[in-house]
Design a protein around this nucleic acid. Structure first.
Lengths: 193, 193, 193, 193
DNA sequence: TATTAAACGAGACGGTACGTCGCGTCTTGGT
DNA sequence: ACCAAGACGCGACGTACCGTCTCGTTTAATA
């Protein structure tokens, strides 16, 4: 039988993260307190501090754990369709309730806390980016993209505008917006001869 | 003389904002406190609360005021050169010390505080964006850009990747990076026939 | 007109000390907490810490303040009657409810906290002792006591046994006990020739 | 062979008490914690709680065990000499380092914890007192003391002033002080005719 | 010139949460 | 079967700031 202690520990860990999301949705990340999480979970503060070094670290775990490991990247052979599908999925997940505000707050916290920033990259951003770049590379090898095409920049251009909308102008993220980005990226800026 | 009182008031306001930047550089935005700003400036807390409703609002003012109104957009007739110049200037200002960390923190705070987000957009992001779009429109009218070119998206594609680097992957912002973004945006993704 | 602010401050100070005694009677000194005193008084913890450096110091003030400055020493000309009266008064005050347990706890705390010990001596023990010694000296000068009589030791012999009962054997303190101490002290140990 | 386990138990018990004294000397009784005793002894907390119900009880054992059973009361026939010898021995033991502060703390704890108070009396104070009273009774029977002499009070007068000095005024305890107490007790207060 | 009203420094105040410590109980794994 | 190790719920510690609220004290504009 699996470990009683680990099970119990894991139970608590799960319960704490669940409460964290709950409270974050109710009062917002800024007003979230470890004290309140402990109280509502029915757990000592120590039990939280034993697991996470800061509110930010806890919140990161709480937000990211349910989404991991993330969706597989599709490969239908049509690079544009695959990108569209993948980006729309991301937009649907991160750009709408309930995750939108939580994810926004998470990125906000990352600006104040280097550990959170690092973990966010390590666990979420980089893997996603690597999958995207890999898919792009495959497409380029198959001649669907221009031979000298800059894959890393393409990746940033696919993500950047969405984050710009999410974090800076804080406008809604729609599939139509994704479409427009793809269009510009596909065609480029220059008038065709 | 006319504005003796205003001047004195203005002096205080300036002094408070100066101290705010000072302290933010020393201890970081997260550990910045109105209490400490008041103490170091030699000012009562009331005098700060009379002027700003929150730490975020004060910080926003402190960071943005010195940079306003921002540089005029150049128009040499060459749209690519003008964009490069403008974006590099922005990168040099916001992507390096001393402003980089402060600006990062400011955007971070905007994720938790809608007022800060709104003010940041109103005072900094939107004007900048509007100037860029106007410049792009002029270029399109002159035939330097494709006729149906999506100016708003272009604007987001020019900014987004930089913010993605600044806020998410937190890698350095270089002129070379700006160049690569411009390259991809100019040429587009598709192989030319 | 007296100071509004001082008045208010004094009010709070009084209220805190009152609550302290209240709680000490309810749960005992050992379980008394500054947290609880603050909560019941409706006062921030800071307001207590601003006034007293420790629970012991607060408790000392709370216990001693109402009893100060202490009763005048009587001088009827009869030293034995005066001593009896004075000691019985002290016993009635400190050796019975409600003060007995509080005073016991105060002396207990003094064993762990030198500041409390010093303040207890300064404010309560020494003044009392000095009055007693002064009264004894007057009696000796008048020939009511043996000429070489050791006044300081007499003082200790008048107090010591009471404290021994109060703190060590923790038996009740009665007037009869006072009487017996006085009897032995008057007559001495040696058989009279 | 028999008591292998008991021996081991006894070893642990001894080790815990030793560490307790060690730590009490280092940081004072107030800052002593069972947690720290367990850690330094290399023992689980349970092992301590299995043996003692509270920090006070442990401390009492730790302080009193080495001094037990106490010195035999001398009987040289000269009551004054015997008292002097016995009291000076007690003063030397309890009124000087290293025991002075520990014993002070023990009595302090007894003010907050009735169990400690009871045990202190039972194991230390009463036996000592009974021996003293027995010795005094023998002396009275032999005519060395006045016939109606109040032995219990005498006992309290011999102890009380010392405890008063130790606990209240916290002045040093010297043989000279013992002498002065004996002198007053012997002669009494009244002028001889 | 004297009066009045505002802004000011200083900081007390009721709160909330921090991160730490130790309590006494309970569980686990090793010996 | 007993033990060290230490997780756990709990409660209090003493600290830091929050944002609000007097206090007297300048300071300037008005009467």
């Amino acid at each position: 039988m699996s470990s009683d202690r680990l099970t119990r520990s894991a139970d608590r860990t799960q319960a704490i993260m669940r409460t964290t999301l709950e409270l974050a949705e109710e009062v917002g990340y800024a007003k979230l307190s470890i004290e309140a999480v402990a109280a509502r979970t029915g757990v000592g503060k120590h039990t939280i501090y034993r697991r996470w070094p800061s509110k930010g670290a806890l919140f990161l775990d709480a937000v990211l754990t349910p989404s991991e490991p993330g969706l597989d990247y599709p490969d239908t052979g049509d690079i544009v369709a695959d990108l569209r599908r993948q980006i729309c999925a991301a937009v649907d997940l991160l750009g709408r309730p309930p995750l939108r505000h939580l994810y926004q707050a998470l990125v906000g916290e990352a600006q104040h806390n280097p550990d959170v920033a690092a973990a966010l990259n390590e666990r979420f951003i980089r893997p996603q980016a690597e999958r995207t770049v890999a898919r792009l590379r495959r497409a380029r090898d198959q001649g669907q993209l221009a031979p000298g095409f800059d894959l890393e920049i393409a990746m940033d251009i696919l993500s950047g505008p969405l984050y710009f909308r999410l974090l800076i102008t804080q406008e809604p993220l729609t599939h139509e917006y994704v479409e427009r980005v793809l269009d510009v990226l596909l065609a480029g800026m220059r008038p065709r001869p």
